[in-house]
Structures are given as structure tokens and as C-alpha cells.
Design a protein around this nucleic acid. Sequence first.
DNA 1: ACGCTTTTGTGAACGGATGCACAAAGTCAC
DNA 2: GTGACTTTGTGCATCCGTTCACAAAAGCGT
Lengths: 239, 239
Amino acid sequence: MSADPSARRGIPDATVARLPEYLRALTGLAERGITSVSSEELASAAGVRSAKLRKDLSHLGSYGVRGVGYEVDHLAYQISRELGLTQDWPVAIIGMGNLGHALAAYSGFATRGFRVVALLDQDAGLLGQEIAGITVQPMTVLDELVAEQGLAIGVIATPAASAQEVCDALVAAGVRSILNFAPCVLVVPDDVDVRKVDLSTELQILAFHEQRKALAAEGALGAVALEPVKPELNRVVGR
Amino acid sequence: MSADPSARRGIPDATVARLPEYLRALTGLAERGITSVSSEELASAAGVRSAKLRKDLSHLGSYGVRGVGYEVDHLAYQISRELGLTQDWPVAIIGMGNLGHALAAYSGFATRGFRVVALLDQDAGLLGQEIAGITVQPMTVLDELVAEQGLAIGVIATPAASAQEVCDALVAAGVRSILNFAPCVLVVPDDVDVRKVDLSTELQILAFHEQRKALAAEGALGAVALEPVKPELNRVVGR
DNA sequence: ACGCTTTTGTGAACGGATGCACAAAGTCAC
DNA sequence: GTGACTTTGTGCATCCGTTCACAAAAGCGT
């Protein structure tokens, strides 16, 4: 309806994915006492091109001043609001193995906007144990957490074998946003969002590029080696 | 040069990012004794559309049989090879805090293709301690690791404040592939690949979508009440 | 041998994201 | 008030990735 540029029905996913980085950069600037920033400077701090930054920001409204730049606090607030960080989202972590344990203590949650309200595990042996000041509870409290605490986000840190089962329990309890650390594909209804964080996938992508670099170097040396001169350049590369 | 379809100069990044998932799906099928699979089945197991899967696979060559499908073992091998997993990549983890500790013990590395050869930390208090069977060493051994172990991949699990410093040390030692868990932008030369894994970014993206869902529900209920009042509500801050 | 069925591999259309270049809109100096 | 200067916001062209739809290729039954 409105011609308001913040007709936020359609902020591109690619833009949304970058907003947290912009917010982080702005927070850093604010801590250093900087109150105003140009798109060029902010883009550089966030690791993108200034044109991309400006286009991204234009999707949330017109918060800059031509000839001057952006007011750091104000822009940070606008991005926070757009991301829904002006409220605290209750989070539950399921699976208190190595990873879940680390996540419970990880400062990432300490960021304004999120609050760990529960640690859950299926293993009766861990129940009652206290981790990072929170008592580990059984999965059966999920319904209660959603109803009484407004639990909205579930973090799955279980082995892959139990991830789908845990996911189903979260969905059944009414959780519609899931962060999955288990290396597997989760099947969920359309109205549930799943984001996946996968260490071994990332390593494999790095390995692909690393291999390409190694092959390129080898190829370059090989080409030289084909020339009848300079045989001593044949060094072992990569491997 | 060659008209070989596996002219791998250009496998799209988007495709490379999905290959690990295909590989995982294939491994799962193989474990269940399945020897042949159609693009439809494999795509379903990997959570993508069959057309996308087929196009992705077509970038590495023509390994399917029309009217039949793909031979599981063979395709798994081809993807492994393309990803560079037929060799073991030496990995070092830097930063033995909560996260680094969990990563050292995490089974993600146990996947064929990677081998943790060192755990490093700048804190002298942790040196000599043994984690997951590996002794924590100081950063100064980096050069040695690259020269003698062929260290190729560095995993940064330090706080954001020291991440760039650690990154610079890795690059100086010759490491060209970095997986960064610290919530910050790393500046590196062009020939170095950095991939970032960031818990709080992922949570914030989820929060955005969660908020949108909440607003949509609210809007559906109270559309009449909310609509006329909205303009000028957000223009509070001057400068 | 031959047509019927299945499934791959891919050309072509489409849509979204990126980068470029510049007009519009503001500040600042005087 | 005016003109020079700075920086935003955005139309446009381009590129990359996804989806569609189908011809080509293989197996199978007769």
C-alpha cells in the first residue's frame, strides 16, 4: 500500500544475510566513539563494496544524509529493529555433548537480542547437571517452554542420528526457527525456517579451493618443466 | 584445451557448496546397501530439486546412466576426488577456549579428508595441556607445521580481538585456507580463501524471519487496527 | 529388431544479485 | 545567498544461479 521505502515485504535474502555484519561494524565504530560514517568507510569495515552497502541499506529506508553519511547510532538502531533485535528472543539448546556444551558457554548468545532459556538433552545421565549456570532439563519440558517463556528458536547440537527426531519435537511444540549444527538435512513444514551450520561442509569447500590452488601451481611448474631448460624448478607442491 | 566435460576451471561456487551435501547423502545410501540411485531420489535425500542436482553433477562430468541413474559408490568417489578428499588435509586449530576445545573433540574432523595436526594458543597457561590426545603448542611452531607437516588449513577459534593477528600469522606462515569462527571480518591477500562460521549472524537471520512471521500473524489479526496509524512513527532521532 | 519406458544431460527462459555511473540532495565556505 | 563539493540513492546493464521442458540415450520386453 504505502510508498514508504521501508515497505519491508521484500528485503532480499542476500541483504538480510549481510545486515548482521553491518550491525557489527557499526557497533565497533560506536565503541570507538565515531558518530558518523560514510558508505565507503562502513563498507570497508564490513568487507563489501560501497555500492552494495548503499543498495542494501536503501531496502530498509533512507537513513543517510547526502554529502555527509550515516549517523552511526541511528543506523545501528534501524538495523537492529529490522532484524528484530529490539526484543529478546528466547533460545533453547538441545544436545549437551561437546558442541552443545561449548555453545551454552559461548558469548555469541550474550549479544543483545538472544537469551538462552533452557538446555535440553535426551540422555538422562546429564539431567540436573548445571552448565553455564543453567540446569539441563529433559525434552519433555518443550511445550512448557514455548507456552510460558515464548521459546521461539531452537538450536540443535545433537548427533545427526537424533537431529530429525529432536527437530520434529521442536516443531510439534511450536518452534518455527531452528539452527541446526548436526550434519544432516532436516525435513520441516513450509512455515519453519532452518539454517545449517556445518563444520565439515565448510572444510570440504576450503579443500576444493585449496586443491585447485595446488593444481594450478603444479600446472604452472609443469608447464615450465616441459620446456627443455630449468629442470631444477621441479619442486614438490601441495600434497 | 581439452573438450573434457570435467574441464574444472569453472565449477560454480554454488555447486561446490552443495557437493558436500551430495556426498553425505551418497555415503548414507551406501551404508544402507543401496548401490544405484536416481537424481530424483538423491536430490530428495540432499534437500534440493532434481534438476539442480543434475546440473550440478553435469559440471563434474557425465557419471550417470540414462534410464537408470547413478552408481552410488562411483559417484561418491568422483565427488570426493573433485573436493580433494582423496588426500588428507592437515588442519590446525588456533584458540583453545570453549569453542576451540569443542572443535578439537568434534567428530567433524574425523570425516575422511582432514587430520588435526596441531592445537595452538597464545595463552602460555594452556601450553602443554593435552586436548583430545593432542598437546597444545605455541603459535611459534606455525612455520614448522607448514614446512614439515604440509599444514594447509587453519581454523581460527579465538576471540574476535585476536583473530586478525592470528590470521596474519597463518598467512605469513603460508596457510592459504582459513575457517574463521571469530565474529569479525578478516583482511587477507587475494590468494587466501576465508570462510566464516558465525553463530550470532545465523541467529540474527533467524530472528529477522521469526519477526516477519510474527508480524504477518499480527497483521492478519489486527490489520485494520494497525494500518492507518503507521507513518512517521520511526522518525524520532535527529542528530 | 523395434518400439516403449525411464531417466539423464542440457539449451533456453527467467529471476535475483552485483557493479557502474550519475543525478539528486544535502553541507560548507564565504 | 550562492556556488563548489561531497555523498547518497537508484536506474541500468550485466552476470550468475535456478527452473523448465525436452531431446538424446540407455534398458527392457516382446
